[in-house]
Amino acid sequence: MTGGTRPEDMRPHDAEDEHVPLRVALLVGAGPSSWAVVNAVAAAHEVVCLLVEPRESRQALVRRRLRRLGVATVAGQLAFQAVAVPVMARASRRRVRDIQQRSGLVATPPALPAVLVSSANSDEARAALRASKPDVVVINGTRILDGTTIAAAGAPVVNVHAGITPSYRGVHGGYWALLEQEPERCGVTVHLVDTGIDTGAVLAQALITATDDDSFVTYPWLQLAAGIPLLLDVLQQLRAGLVPHVTTAASEHRPLRYHPTLWTYLYGRWLLGVK
């Protein structure tokens, strides 16, 4: 089984094909941030395939995390999502709208034919990817792809990750970077996808600056606002026949990030002012 797309395997367009649109397959989760990625890519390139994976059921997610993190941590995470996130989401509506408008993000469902797949690693998803013969596959908000799916793509698979890898893998990398007092690592990464969790070669990174109006629920939008132009740059380079510059990130033994527990969040906000 392959370990994913390696930088040397990237197959950009021939330089002669510069005026031929890049054929992009999109494999995304259902949600506003994925719609923003899809709409931005569709505006610049030919979308040959749009596969949408439904959200993983909450019960399945909780069971998986219970096995990995234990009862106390998962209870704290659920409390955080049940209590703190809705309050922040309500308070940050205007700020999110502001970020979307300023950055030209269109977070509404795209007017494109989409195929709903049961899982990004399902046979139907692999068959659709194989059949569409894309030049590149862009993913966002899906579960971790396995080697068979990556191989089925037959093209580089690229992800926009909300965090600076390899320091901040997992979810909400912007928040964790601020909590750990590393604003110089609060940002977004465009990387090649392999079978690990956000471990692929880095193609581009950008930092974000959080204002006093930002919080846990707006950092991902700031990251997307910075990450989508990076993604489009990478795609443009592929279209122009260039191999994007690949950074082999130094390996760091840092834990995979999950949602904070309610008490971690409250303590960090009280002590360090990280919202």
Partner: peptide, 9 residues
């Protein structure tokens, strides 16, 4: 890594 700064208040 680029040093883009966006939306500073």
């Amino acid at each position: 890594m680029t040093d883009d700064v966006i939306m500073r208040k």
